[in-house]
Design a protein around this nucleic acid. Sequence first.
DNA 1: CTGAAAGCGCTAACAG
DNA 2: CTGTTAGCGCTTTCAG
Lengths: 339, 339
Amino acid sequence: MPERRVRPTIHDVARRAGVSATTVSHTFSGKGVVAAATREHVREVARELGYRPDAVARGLRNSRLGVLALVLRPLETLDSFLPEGVDYFLRFAGQAALAAMQLGYGLMLVSDPTQESSPSAALACDGFLITEPVQGDPLVRMLIDERIPFLTVGRDPANADYDTWIDTGTTQMTYEVLRHLTEAGASRVALVTGTDRNSWNIDAENAYRAWAADRGQEPLVVHQPETAGESGGSAAAHELLRAASPPDAVYCLTGRHAAGLLRAVTERGYTVPGDIRIVAGSDSEHSRSTTPPITSVDLGPELLARVAVTMLVNRLESLDRPIPPGDLHGRLIVRGSTA
Amino acid sequence: MPERRVRPTIHDVARRAGVSATTVSHTFSGKGVVAAATREHVREVARELGYRPDAVARGLRNSRLGVLALVLRPLETLDSFLPEGVDYFLRFAGQAALAAMQLGYGLMLVSDPTQESSPSAALACDGFLITEPVQGDPLVRMLIDERIPFLTVGRDPANADYDTWIDTGTTQMTYEVLRHLTEAGASRVALVTGTDRNSWNIDAENAYRAWAADRGQEPLVVHQPETAGESGGSAAAHELLRAASPPDAVYCLTGRHAAGLLRAVTERGYTVPGDIRIVAGSDSEHSRSTTPPITSVDLGPELLARVAVTMLVNRLESLDRPIPPGDLHGRLIVRGSTA
DNA sequence: CTGAAAGCGCTAACAG
DNA sequence: CTGTTAGCGCTTTCAG
């Protein structure tokens, strides 16, 4: 490996400028008081030398690296080769990175740092963003214990010890979907959820059960691992069609389950949306490109990400930057599978 | 802001284990020689205390943070609110992050670190990945000068001083698209490129001009800024239709230009693909959801990202991990706009 | 095989 | 306003 050229240090600048290292430090950190003339001179010399403060050394002193960590929980349960159907997380990550940049931070994608295997740089981040923490999430626990600032998108369903989470409005959206299905002519709606114990799955199932109870209906719920993808959807289809009173509408929380279910019921000769209406809880390539395309919930990850980053940075810096306005609760995109 | 709980340091472990800090350091870095029994004991104590080496302090000594930086060049010229139609970069970033994780690295999304405004942590990264560097890219220059390992996806068209770049096969793909259009019945093909001076735009235009010259045809090229999006596509349409001999096929390198162009020509009463065939050089939501859907090149960012990360880490560690196999040159997805 | 000592580049006190 | 001093947590000679 080629040796890195030695970057000029604060001492090089100090010597060349005829001042002390402290003065250089102060002119760059803006902390101490430096005469305007001195400051100008130091800046000038630094520019000549190509000096830039070293973030690592700086971070060592003030434990502030200028980096936010992003943990995309559900990605960790997914296969290594990122399948289609996870638009949500990529859109979230991309937007979060941009927002962080604009606030002067880097955004690092990391896997769970409670795992020994994770890059140790993860622990050095200034704050954490966690999407859809799982029930009793060990990372949330650790961050609380270590007093590291963090924010979760969706809450840890088993942890009441923190309030730094963003409500993604799953309950409300579930009712909206159920209403939509009813209006589209469905009389018996089933639910297919994933098996991760996160608030998304849990809140949706609770809302569904409450709704069913309200209507005096027997709830019809199937669980399939998120990782099962389309074949999980197809398995759910078989299970549902065997039921005592089979559904005429299915709400699948994941796009891949929905796509698999659509294919399975179609192959069995049912028409969609004639015999069975289908809605996906997360919009994705998978839901758009089927025949018919699947009515889906667009969770609006872009806005969610911007809001989350802004809130976290506000916490980090005890500031009050305005939170980007807008509805965090997603919207239903009606397509052929229910229309 | 709450004060962080003090993490145990190497000294805490040393004291508790009755050894010196050096020994602890050695057992964790694997560098020196430590008796097996001692090593076990130290590990044990460290576990009790919840000790994990501090990546920042460690990085200070050996300038190795365990983090890869990813610079998505074209994103920087885009509006802050990430528009639809940039699937490519998000898919690339997501996959790169996963690949990096699996090799024990974090992946940090950063903006150009030659800019003063960028988070200074950016400079501390061990290696850089740059997608589509621009002509005479200042970041590439800087990385060469500073001897920081890097890899570009697409080359810097004006910099022959490095060979650590991945060929995305733009030239070859351009010919493939032109052939496809010809086979679809086109006799006069125009090209719409972006204005960023990167190898993607440049190679495509060169290939197109060579192809036109071969056929003794007058080339018909329009440039529109990437940022212009759909309205850029619509502007291109107006320009092309005014031409002395208007095209019966258009190859738009960006998905958003293609979508705008499709709309504009349709509004003017042309049929697609009857009167005009359209191909987009980059697959995206925009190209899929139009009527008709637009034939597009899927650049395969997932594989590109995995290959790039693996190659970069190999360089960093002077290793020879196998490069994920597969064709890096993208594939054409034929849709209604040419069929 | 183990440990003492000397920093990596920077910043936080505190004196001048 | 500026400089001196003393480390942050870890690694690295180099002697035992």
